[in-house]
Amino acid sequence: MNVFRLTGDLSHLAAIIILLLKIWKTRSCAGISGKSQILFALVFTTRYLDLLTSFISLYNTCMKIIYVGCAYATVYLIYAKFRATYDGNHDTFRIEFLVVPVGGLAFLVNHDFSPLEILWTFSIYLESVAILPQLFMISKTGEAETITTHYLFCLGVYRALYLFNWIWRFYFEGFFDMIAIVAGVVQTILYCDFFYLYVTKVNAVQRFQ
């Protein structure tokens, strides 16, 4: 555990909780892509199956349970509790165009051809592109509420911090995981355009357009 890893995890946690609280407090999920949230629930489910097979640390177990629980709570709020406010007409990204190729890639490029390892690899690849329905939705409507942009910022910063974590681990532990690193770089790049807009516009205008 190093400072980049810890702040990355906390940033990820902050993003998840910001989104949950935003939906809960405003009683609305307008502007939020339910499809991205379904993909994140799928990411956490397939990645954290090792909760059932191995114990790593109390921190690890607690965070995994919180991430999975929050992901499903978010999906529940969007598709059940506050379904009337869900902006389905603008959430039109076809997620099969992500899930199918990512599934194929996980079968072809992985560390080991075993069910758990393939599902873990699938989750890493899928996470790198899971935000696309949300970004697509924002580009379609042309705007996002400020709190939604804070959510996206924290979510993007998390993987960027993990990149520094991996550099740290390579130098000090000789550890590297090429699958995670390449997917992490892709994931961070997808947020770059958003980061630029966030820094230049959100804090100045308080309205993201």
Binding site: R5, D9, H12, D50, S54, I56, S57, N60, M63, K64, Y67, H111, D112, E117, W120, Y162, N165, F175, D177, I179, A180
Partner: peptide
């Protein structure tokens, strides 16, 4: 392969 060891990252 060390990547097949327990995955401690989230």
């Amino acid at each position: 392969d060390q990547n097949l060891q327990q995955k401690d990252e989230l």
